[in-house]
Simulated assay, not measured.
Amino acid sequence: MFMGEYQHSVDEKGRMIIPAKFRDALGVGFVLTRGLDNCLFVYPHDEWEILEAKLKTLPLTRADARSFVRFFFSGATECELDKQGRISIPATLREYAGLVKDCTVIGVSNRIEIWAADRWQSYSNDASESFASIAETLVDLNL
Rank of each mutant, 00 (worst) to 15 (best):
M16N: 06
T104M: 10
T77I: 09
L60V: 10
V69R: 09
K54Y: 04
V69C: 06
S9I: 05
S122Q: 14
P90Y: 10
D102F: 13
V69S: 07
L36P: 01
A76H: 03
K21C: 07
S88M: 15
I18F: 11
T104P: 10
A63D: 00
L26V: 03
R34G: 06
I50K: 11
D118H: 13
G27E: 09
V100Y: 12
C39H: 02
W120Q: 05
D11N: 09
P44N: 07
K13W: 07
K101H: 15
A116Q: 06
Q84M: 07
S122C: 00
V28F: 12
T104V: 15
E52K: 08
V108E: 01
G27F: 07
A20V: 15
E12R: 09
I106V: 15
L93Y: 05
D46R: 09
R15L: 08
G14W: 01
F41E: 05
I106L: 03
G14R: 01
F71G: 07
E12S: 14
L58P: 04
I112T: 10
L40C: 05
H8D: 13
C79R: 10
F41A: 00
K83L: 03
R86N: 04
T61N: 09
C79I: 08
K54L: 11
D37V: 06
D102Q: 08
I18E: 03
W120F: 12
S74P: 00
E47I: 07
L40K: 02
S122A: 12
G75T: 06
K13H: 13
T33C: 10
D102E: 14
I18D: 01
V108M: 06
W115E: 08
S9L: 04
A91T: 03
W48H: 11
F41S: 05
C103I: 11
F68H: 06
W115R: 07
S122D: 14
G4N: 13
Y43M: 01
K83I: 05
T61G: 03
F71A: 11
L55R: 08
E80R: 04
T61V: 09
M16Q: 02
L51V: 08
I17V: 15
W48G: 11
A97Q: 04
D118Q: 12
D46Y: 09
K56I: 05
V31K: 07
R119S: 13
S9T: 08
F71E: 01
Y96I: 01
M16P: 04
K83N: 14
C103F: 01
T92E: 11
P90W: 09
